[in-house]
């Protein structure tokens, strides 16, 4: 392609990258070095390395891991079964559809469903288990988070499964492999890329959930995202907020590196 036309394509896109990817990251790193009074200092970083924040970081990672694991567990079979249906594109769209309904509303709906006098408890009473406290527990937090993230996990896996050459599966069967072995040795490894993108798409946002931690977990779970939101919007301590963001970015880079595509 002629170079001046190439420049035409490059320009808007590279401009976008510079303005909206590179600059914001640099800004965040810059801000993290300013304390609440606006003077240059390392105290934000000092603060981050105290038990409070380290505990918070660890806890965030743990929950993000749980959420990713459960999402994968539920999403993979779903994606697999979807590829075997007729009208698979339609079903896929129907999976995405709930994403279009506002998150806050769904959370409020869950508040109603999981409430002490809600439907879930009615059901539990019906089957004889008796009402339990579902809200404000780790269970409900992970459940609702998985609910939100499952579509993000399904999409890449579905794509990877679609790309899979069906003759490979047939070959395995011909050679006498059971369904489980076929899955373990043929299907899963070939769709690993999809699994990796799905994990990327779930794990990192899961680190920074803040609305769900308040609404469903009643702040019994604190993520790095809660702290960032607090600092940026309530305390107006942008410096500290930026510092936490820096660590999230570092975590993100590491994850991307670990699960990256090596095409």
């Amino acid at each position: 392609m002629k170079s001046n036309i190439r420049a035409l394509y490059f320009l808007p896109y590279v401009l976008w990258i510079l303005l909206f990817v590179v600059v914001p990251i640099l800004l965040i790193i810059y801000y993290s070095f300013f304390n609440i009074e606006g003077t240059f200092s390392f105290e934000n970083y000092e603060k981050f390395f105290t038990p409070v924040y380290l505990k918070m970081a660890l806890s965030s990672f743990w929950y993000a891991f749980l959420i990713t694991a459960f999402s994968l567990l539920i999403a993979y079979p779903t994606a697999l079964l979807l590829t075997k249906t007729k009208h698979k594109q339609l079903w896929l769209l129907l999976i995405i559809l709930p994403m279009w309904i506002n998150l806050l509303l769904k959370a409020y709906a869950f508040l109603g469903i999981f409430g002490t006098y809600g439907i879930a408890n009615h059901f539990l009473e019906l089957i004889g288990v008796g009402a339990k406290q579902i809200l404000f527990t780790d269970f409900s937090f992970v459940f609702v988070s998985v609910y939100i993230f499952v579509p993000f996990m399904i999409l890449p896996i579905f794509n990877a499964l679609e790309k899979l050459n069906p003759t490979l599966v047939d070959a395995a069967k011909d050679l006498g492999a059971s369904p489980w072995i076929t899955f373990r040795r043929v299907i899963f490894p070939l769709t690993l890329d999809g699994v990796k993108s799905g994990c990327q798409a779930v794990f990192i946002p899961a680190l920074s959930l803040f609305m769900i931690t308040r609404l469903i977990a009643g702040n019994r779970v604190i993520t790095l995202g809660t702290a960032i939101e607090q600092h940026f919007l309530v305390t107006q301590n942008w410096g500290m907020g930026a510092t936490i963001a820096v660590f999230l970015i570092i975590a993100m880079v590491i994850i991307m590196f670990l699960t990256g595509n090596r095409k």
Partner: peptide, 14 residues
């Protein structure tokens, strides 16, 4: 891959 919070915060600064 970035969490919304970081995107929002960094754009706000920008």
């Amino acid at each position: 891959v970035s969490p919304d919070v970081i995107i929002g915060a960094s754009f706000l600064i920008l």
